[in-house]
Design a protein around this nucleic acid. Sequence first.
DNA 1: CTTGATCCTCTAACCGCTAGAGGTTGTAGG
DNA 2: CCTACAACCTCTAGCGGTTAGAGGATCAAG
Lengths: 138, 138
Amino acid sequence: MNLAIGDLSRRTGVKIPTIRYYEQIGLLPSPARTEGQQRRYGPAEVRRLNFIRHARELGFEVDAIRQLLGLADDPDRCCGEVHDITKAHLDEVKDKIARLTALRDELEAMVACDNRRISECRIIEVLADHGECQHQQH
Amino acid sequence: MNLAIGDLSRRTGVKIPTIRYYEQIGLLPSPARTEGQQRRYGPAEVRRLNFIRHARELGFEVDAIRQLLGLADDPDRCCGEVHDITKAHLDEVKDKIARLTALRDELEAMVACDNRRISECRIIEVLADHGECQHQQH
DNA sequence: CTTGATCCTCTAACCGCTAGAGGTTGTAGG
DNA sequence: CCTACAACCTCTAGCGGTTAGAGGATCAAG
C-alpha cells in the first residue's frame, strides 16, 4: 500500500490540488516522497483524508476539522469538546436554515408577481424599497 | 444632495470599500468627481445602491443583480425575466434549505453522543467512517 | 491657514479550493 | 536499455464578495 497522489484522490474522492492544499495548510501531514520527490501515501493518510472529506461534507470549517482531528488522536480523552464543536456547528446550521426559510417566504411572495410591466412589478418594487418587504436581516 | 462616499455609505449601510468594489465591477456607475478626484453621489446612486443592497440581502448573486438592474431600467417591458431570475433564485434557496435540513438531522443524531471517551464517540466514528452516517451528499 | 476627518489608489488578505504553465519522474512495452 | 506518455512536481493566479491597511491627497470648519 504505497499510493501516489492520484490513487489517493481516486480512493477518497478528493481532487489532487485539494490534497496538496490540505497538506499546505497543515490538515494532512507531509507524506513520504520518492527519490524524485513524488508523494507516496499509506493507509493512515487514506483514513485521515476520508475523515476530512466527511467532515467537509457535513459542512465543518477547516479550523473545526483541525480541532476534531487533534481530539480524535487522543482516544482516552472525554469527547465533550467534540460534542461542543459539533453542537456549535449544528447551531450555525439551524440559524442558516431559519434565515433561508425567511428568505424563501419572501421570495415566494415576490414570484407571485407574474407577467406585468416592469413599472408595476412587485419584485422590482421590493428590491427598490425594502419597506415593501417583510425581510429583516441576515 | 451631493454626497461623499462616506455619506452614501451611512445612508445605505454599505461599507465604503464595498461601494468602490461595486463601481469597479460595474454594478454602480462611475460617479461625478470633485476637482480633487473625490466621488460625489446623487439620489439616483442612493436608489441604485439600496436596490443592490436589498438584492444582496435576499441572497441574489452579483450577476443576477446586474440582470435585474438592467431590466429595472426598462419600465415598459414585461417582467417575465425578472420573475424567472427570482424563481431560479428561489429554487436554489429551497435546495439549500433541503440540504441543510438533512445536515441538521445528521448533526442532531451526532450530538446525541455525549460525554464518552473519544475511542467510543459516535461523532468521531461517523466522521471516520461515512458508512455510519445517513448523509448522502450535498 | 491650520487641523483633522475624510477621501484617494493600490495591494493584499480572507475561505476553500481550482486551474494552468512549464518542467520532471515513474512505469510499461518494445 | 530505451522510448513514450501518463502522471507527477512547483509555482502562480483566479474565483466571489468583500474587507483591511499603507501612504498620501483633499475637503470643510474654525
